[in-house]
Amino acid sequence: MKVSSSLHFARRGASGTALLPALLIVGMVTLVVVLFFNMSTVQLRSSSSHAAVHDLNTLQDMAVNAAIGQMRQGTTETNALWISQPGAIRTYGKSTGTASRIYKLYSAQEMVVSAAGLTDGSALNLESDVPPPGTLCRASMPISMSRRRMSLAT
């Protein structure tokens, strides 16, 4: 019987040595998983900021292309003379000289207005389209990014 009891103690010592490598492997796998999720978070933030910059560039291009389209439409109108002013292009009948249309080069509810229906001087001067101060910004203003939000630098 003494032989079996000594074997029993030998098994206990051998089974405890496998615990340490198993814990090391589990710890290393946990470390790899945590690092993977950390790297995924960084990649998500990076791609989100890149997408925001791309969207901003697309919006800038859309605004410029809308203004170019309005300019082309106003300057290529048949049987008309055109005059440019800051923010608009006015067309006049070639033979009559009366005001025909006003093509606005900024965002408005109506981008092309028939000048024949405008009789009031302030409407002809587009004074009703002037937005309140602080609602417009220059395209050349720098943009600051902080805490994943883009804002115009003041």
Rank of each mutant, 00 (worst) to 15 (best):
M1I: 07
K2S: 09
S4T: 12
S5K: 11
S6I: 09
S6F: 11
H8T: 06
H8L: 13
H8S: 12
F9T: 03
R11T: 11
R11P: 02
S15L: 14
S15R: 12
T17N: 08
A18Q: 09
A18K: 09
L20H: 05
A22F: 12
V26W: 07
N38H: 12
N38F: 12
M39D: 14
L44M: 13
S46M: 11
S47G: 06
S47Y: 10
S47W: 08
S47N: 14
S48G: 11
S49F: 09
H50Q: 15
A51H: 12
V53H: 12
H54K: 14
D55F: 08
D55R: 08
L56T: 07
T58V: 15
L59S: 11
Q60W: 13
D61I: 06
N65A: 14
A67K: 11
A67F: 05
I68D: 13
Q70P: 04
M71G: 06
G74S: 14
T76V: 04
E77D: 10
T78L: 11
A80Y: 05
A80W: 03
L81E: 10
L81P: 03
W82L: 03
Q85H: 08
Q85K: 10
P86S: 11
G87H: 03
I89D: 01
Y92I: 04
Y92F: 15
Y92L: 14
S95Y: 05
T96F: 04
R101L: 05
Y103Q: 02
S107R: 00
Q109H: 04
E110C: 00
V112H: 02
S114D: 12
A115S: 09
L118R: 04
L118W: 02
G121D: 10
L124Q: 09
N125G: 00
N125R: 09
E127Q: 11
D129G: 00
D129N: 00
V130D: 04
V130C: 05
P131G: 02
P131Q: 05
P132F: 04
P133T: 01
G134W: 01
R138N: 11
M141L: 10
I143R: 07
M145K: 09
S146C: 00
R147M: 09
R148K: 10
R149Q: 10
S151R: 13
L152E: 08
A153E: 13
